Amino acid sequence: KNALMQLNEIKPGLQYTLLSQTGPVHAPLFVMSVEVNGQVFEGSGPTKKKAKLHAAEKALR
């Protein structure tokens, strides 16, 4: 199970927000955030999926 699945089991129905998309078309950088218990966690990556995963990993720490 990855961090997204684990976080969804603990806190179902979380909303992930796209904060920014920067970089060239062939190498974009997405920044996504998720709010858990009033705290906002951000993650970035080359795809929205990876950015969401990194945000979930930070939220689980």
Rank of each mutant, 00 (worst) to 15 (best):
K1V: 12
K1L: 12
K1M: 15
K1S: 07
N2Y: 03
N2A: 04
N2L: 03
N2C: 09
N2E: 09
A3F: 15
A3V: 10
A3G: 04
A3Q: 09
A3Y: 15
A3M: 13
A3H: 10
L4N: 05
L4S: 06
L4V: 13
L4R: 07
L4F: 15
L4I: 15
L4Y: 15
L4E: 10
L4D: 06
M5C: 14
M5A: 14
M5F: 15
M5V: 09
M5I: 12
M5L: 13
M5Y: 15
M5W: 14
Q6E: 15
Q6V: 12
Q6G: 06
Q6W: 12
Q6D: 08
Q6Y: 10
Q6M: 15
L7V: 03
L7F: 03
L7T: 00
L7M: 08
L7P: 01
N8G: 10
N8Y: 10
N8S: 13
N8P: 00
N8V: 05
N8R: 15
N8L: 08
N8I: 07
E9M: 14
E9S: 12
E9P: 00
E9G: 11
I10Y: 10
I10H: 11
I10Q: 08
I10G: 05
I10L: 14
I10S: 08
I10W: 13
K11D: 15
K11N: 11
K11G: 07
K11L: 12
K11S: 13
K11R: 13
K11F: 15
K11H: 15
K11C: 14
P12S: 07
P12G: 07
P12H: 05
P12L: 02
P12I: 04
P12Y: 02
G13T: 06
G13Q: 06
G13E: 09
G13H: 08
L14I: 15
L14Y: 04
L14E: 01
L14C: 11
L14W: 02
L14F: 03
Q15K: 12
Q15W: 04
Q15L: 07
Q15D: 08
Q15H: 10
Q15E: 10
Q15P: 08
Q15T: 12
Q15R: 14
Y16T: 02
Y16N: 02
Y16P: 04
Y16L: 02
Y16Q: 03
Y16S: 02
T17N: 09
T17G: 05
T17H: 11
T17W: 06
T17R: 13
T17L: 10
T17K: 11
L18V: 08
L18R: 04
L18S: 04
L18Q: 07
L18M: 13
L18Y: 05
L18W: 06
L19M: 12
L19E: 14
L19N: 06
S20V: 06
S20I: 05
S20E: 11
S20A: 12
S20F: 06
S20C: 08
S20P: 07
S20Y: 09
S20T: 12
S20D: 06
S20H: 08
S20W: 05
Q21Y: 07
Q21R: 14
Q21W: 08
Q21H: 11
Q21N: 09
Q21T: 12
T22M: 08
T22R: 08
T22S: 10
T22K: 10
T22W: 05
T22A: 10
G23T: 05
G23V: 03
G23W: 01
G23K: 05
G23S: 06
G23Y: 02
P24K: 08
P24V: 06
P24I: 05
P24D: 15
V25W: 08
V25H: 11
V25M: 13
V25Y: 10
V25G: 15
V25R: 15
V25D: 14
V25Q: 15
V25L: 11
V25T: 14
V25K: 15
V25C: 13
H26N: 15
H26L: 05
H26V: 05
H26D: 15
H26C: 11
H26W: 07
A27R: 14
A27P: 08
A27K: 15
A27H: 11
A27T: 08
A27V: 06
A27G: 09
P28R: 13
P28L: 02
P28K: 12
P28Q: 13
P28F: 02
P28N: 05
P28E: 07
L29Y: 11
L29D: 10
L29I: 12
L29W: 14
F30N: 04
F30T: 05
F30Y: 10
F30W: 13
F30Q: 02
F30S: 04
V31I: 12
V31S: 12
V31C: 13
V31L: 12
V31T: 15
M32A: 10
M32P: 00
M32S: 06
M32G: 03
S33K: 14
S33V: 08
S33L: 06
S33H: 09
S33P: 01
S33T: 14
S33I: 09
S33C: 12
V34Y: 01
V34P: 01
V34Q: 01
V34H: 01
V34C: 07
V34D: 00
E35Q: 06
E35G: 05
E35R: 05
V36E: 02
V36D: 01
V36A: 05
V36C: 05
V36Y: 06
V36G: 02
N37V: 03
N37D: 14
N37H: 08
N37P: 00
N37R: 05
N37W: 06
N37E: 13
N37I: 03
G38N: 07
G38F: 02
G38H: 06
G38L: 01
G38A: 03
G38M: 02
Q39E: 14
Q39C: 09
Q39G: 06
Q39Y: 09
V40M: 12
V40I: 13
V40D: 06
V40E: 10
V40W: 07
V40L: 11
V40G: 05
V40T: 11
V40K: 14
V40R: 12
F41W: 04
F41A: 03
F41V: 07
E42H: 10
E42C: 10
E42Y: 09
E42I: 14
E42L: 13
E42W: 05
E42Q: 08
G43F: 00
G43I: 00
G43M: 00
G43W: 01
G43Y: 00
G43H: 00
G43V: 01
S44C: 11
S44F: 05
G45R: 01
G45Q: 02
G45A: 05
G45T: 01
G45F: 00
G45W: 00
G45P: 00
G45D: 01
G45K: 01
P46E: 11
P46G: 08
P46F: 09
P46A: 12
P46D: 12
P46Q: 10
T47H: 01
T47K: 05
T47C: 04
T47G: 03
K48F: 06
K48D: 03
K48S: 05
K49V: 12
K49D: 14
K50Q: 11
K50S: 13
K50M: 14
K50D: 11
K50P: 01
K50N: 06
K50Y: 07
A51K: 01
A51I: 03
A51Q: 03
K52V: 04
K52C: 09
K52G: 03
K52L: 04
K52T: 06
K52D: 01
L53P: 00
L53F: 05
L53V: 07
L53W: 13
H54E: 14
H54P: 03
H54V: 13
H54F: 09
H54Q: 15
H54R: 13
H54L: 10
H54S: 14
H54C: 11
A55C: 12
A55K: 00
A55Y: 01
A55R: 00
A55D: 01
A55V: 07
A55P: 03
A55S: 03
A55N: 00
A56N: 03
A56L: 03
A56V: 02
A56Y: 03
A56R: 03
A56H: 00
E57D: 08
E57L: 07
E57Q: 09
E57V: 07
E57C: 07
E57W: 05
E57T: 08
K58C: 12
K58L: 13
K58H: 09
K58D: 11
K58T: 10
K58R: 11
K58N: 07
A59K: 03
A59V: 12
A59E: 00
A59W: 03
A59S: 02
A59R: 01
A59T: 03
L60K: 01
L60A: 02
L60W: 08
L60N: 03
L60Y: 05
R61Y: 12
R61P: 04
R61D: 07
R61M: 14
